[in-house]
Amino acid sequence: MLTHTLFFYFFSIIAIFSSLMVITSRNTVNSVFFLILDFISVGCLFIMVGAEFLGMIILIVYVGAVAVLFLFVVMMLNVAEQKQSWFIGKKSTHIPTGLIVSVLIFLELLVVVGGWKQKDNLMNSSTLEISNISNTHQLGLVMYTDYILYFQIAGVILLLSMIGAILLTFRKRSGVKKQNYFKQISRDPESSVQLLKVESNKGVKIDD
């Protein structure tokens, strides 16, 4: 039990410290690195309470995919330039907007946390029984029976946002030479090579 407690405090202190560093560090890339550290330690906390599936999914989805894309975008920004215009510049419109958003999120969190009730009996589902079946199995049993509608709606929303993102970034460029695999493979000497008789001092006109 002692080691368990020690590990809990270890991971929670790292999580809190790194989440503070996310918002205080001046270098944007560093703050993304701290965000990753935060995700990892939260994942470890999930594993410690026995939610191994959730912990691993946090590692795979957030750390392995989402944070990589974050890093990808943030690395492209010119960090040094931003340092001046964001924090010192006079015409900064980011701070009031950010304040409004953060106050809103804080209020929402208050509402959510205020409505929390601790249940003695967490198992309140028609299909779930207390047994030895694994975490993943139990999640599947609940997700595909009681909450199938929400699960499917979440999937549809994700699909929609994916299509939206593709639509936003898709542009048809003209004049780009692209390789057409079928065209390339189906070429043969008869259709693409011709023998010309070149007249002296006149040359040939090659069409391209």
């Binding site: 599936f53 590692l59 795979i60 750390v63 392995g64 990589v68 890093l71 694994s134």
Partner: peptide, 19 residues
């Protein structure tokens, strides 16, 4: 219990060293 997920997670973290 989630061995294969662990492997998948760790191998997907491998990109960080490179980035």
């Amino acid at each position: 219990n989630v061995g294969i997920l662990y492997l998948f997670a760790i191998s997907s973290l491998g990109v960080y060293g490179i980035i």
